[in-house]
Write a protein that binds this DNA or RNA. Structure first.
Length: 178
DNA sequence: CCCTGATTCGC
DNA sequence: GCGAATCAGG
């Protein structure tokens, strides 16, 4: 890949926004994080305050610790086709609701009611996802508390073992539910 | 082991 | 100039 003016500009922008080299490399495409870092140095762009890990300056504030609205539905992922629906658009209920309700019913409801059984999500940003992190979305993408499950997923699976079951429902199992 | 940026050095 | 390999750190 070539460092066109356009790409360099994007690099500068993203770097100044605090994105990591690997993230920038991913967005530019066709380059490694090393390439990005090397370019940054050659451009004499200001490096990160302190090397290693996450620059503390890049994480301005910690959201409130208390979870505002704990519920089983808080963790319900929104399928892309639903999320992409224009506000107010009419959606064919037969198309999506059936599957959804099935999923929701399948969620184990804990005796104490309030906590989702999916133990913990490592509140990962889109930025932190790797080949081995669960990419199950949690929350409303339009909300700033949106994040990903991030738990370890087997081998090359995009989801952890728990979310795998929601993502890939065996056809036999689906038939059983109809 | 996952990640981060920094540096080196052959190309 | 480029970036893989390496280093150093969380």
């Amino acid at each position: 890949m070539n460092w066109t003016d356009e790409r360099v500009e994007k690099l500068k922008k993203l770097w100044s926004e605090g994105l990591s080299a690997s993230q920038i490399a991913a967005q530019l495409g066709g380059v490694s994080r090393n390439a990005v870092i090397g370019k940054v140095h050659r451009l004499n762009l200001p490096g990160r305050a302190k090397a290693g890990g996450t620059p503390s300056a890049a994480r301005p504030k910690r959201p409130a610790v208390a979870t505002p609205r704990p519920s089983n539905f808080a963790a319900r992922p929104v399928p892309a086709r639903v999320a992409a629906r224009p506000a107010g658009a009419i959606v064919a209920k037969e198309d999506i609701d059936a599957d959804f309700d099935a999923q929701i019913e399948q969620l184990p409801v804990p005796a104490n009611g309030n906590k989702v059984v999916v133990p913990m999500s490592r509140k990962l940003e889109l930025t932190q996802l790797t080949e081995r992190t669960c990419k199950w979305p949690i929350g409303d993408p339009l909300n700033d508390d949106f994040h990903f499950c991030g738990n370890e997923s087997p081998d090359n699976s995009p989801y952890c073992t728990y979310h795998q079951r929601l993502a890939y429902q065996p056809s036999a199992e689906r038939r059983r539910m109809r």
